[in-house]
């Protein structure tokens, strides 16, 4: 059985849930395909996918055993451009966080490239695959409208204090809280171009749910040092790396 993450705490369990591709993540909201296209901002809804090469079927490719073994993803088959979606996760009990995103993306999706930074996490793939993946990421547990930001640029804010209504700071004001409906709306696409109509992302999750779903160890939530099992494994990795460079023969 594959081992994804050590630890006995709820945070460790959540990390295992995200990283295990067999585990089905809970779908929390519904966002239409058109809305996903709008907030990505790579093409207008209904517009044809632009391509960078002809469909693979029409291309005269050299004989190669790997090409036969690996089934290309839909976007590659059609010759789409590579496009991206980037998320920012607040330190204040956001459901996901950058390193976990990287691990879980690579376990869950084929044909993607993912980049991790301290406060943000980008995933790149062919355009129609990015749209499919984005829809999943936005609708299920990975995303919370208040604590997770969809930000192609102007990403600053993951470590700042939240607003009183629970929203993470966003210098471009893409995700805004509608006081009348109690829902978070996206008024700009991910790089800050204004949308004609706001995209409703739904209600923010309440604090209790977030604390139950979070994958972030925090001293005011579940502290890492209290998860003895996780600390032990980390310690073992650290010692074997430092002393023997992971080489059991030494």
């Amino acid at each position: 059985m594959a081992q994804f993450y050590p630890g006995t705490s709820q945070v460790a369990q959540n990390r295992r849930n995200f990283t295990n591709p067999e585990y089905e993540l809970e779908v929390l909201r519904e966002i239409s395909d058109e809305d996903v296209v709008k907030l990505l901002g790579h093409r207008a809804p209904g517009e044809e996918y632009k391509s960078v090469h002809p469909p693979l079927d029409e291309m005269d490719e050299p004989d190669d055993i790997i090409r036969e073994l690996v089934e290309p993803i839909d976007g590659a088959k059609a010759g789409d451009r590579v496009r991206y979606i980037q998320f920012v996760d607040s330190m204040y009990f956001a459901p996901a966080q950058p390193y976990l995103r990287a691990r879980s993306y690579l376990n869950r999706y084929r044909g993607v490239d993912t980049g991790t930074l301290s406060g943000r996490q980008i995933i790149e793939a062919r355009e129609r695959d990015v749209e499919r993946i984005s829809k999943e990421l936005l609708e299920n547990e990975y995303f919370d409208p208040a604590r997770t930001g969809i930000r192609g640029s102007g990403v600053h804010g993951h470590s700042l204090r939240l607003d009183e209504n629970g929203l993470m700071f966003d210098m471009l004001r893409r995700q805004v809280f509608n006081k009348e409906t109690g829902k978070v709306e996206m008024v700009k696409d991910q790089i800050g171009h204004e949308l004609d109509e706001p995209v409703v992302l739904g209600e923010p999750l309440d604090e209790e749910t977030l604390r139950a779903k979070t994958t972030i160890y925090r001293i005011d939530g579940e502290a890492y040092k209290d998860d003895a099992d996780a600390v032990e494994v980390l310690n073992k990795i650290f010692v074997t790396r430092s002393n023997y460079g992971y080489n059991p023969e030494l």
Partner: peptide, 11 residues
């Protein structure tokens, strides 16, 4: 030092 940035009503 409030733990969240305060809105106009609370202020």
């Amino acid at each position: 030092f409030p733990h969240r940035i305060l809105g106009a009503d609370t202020t």
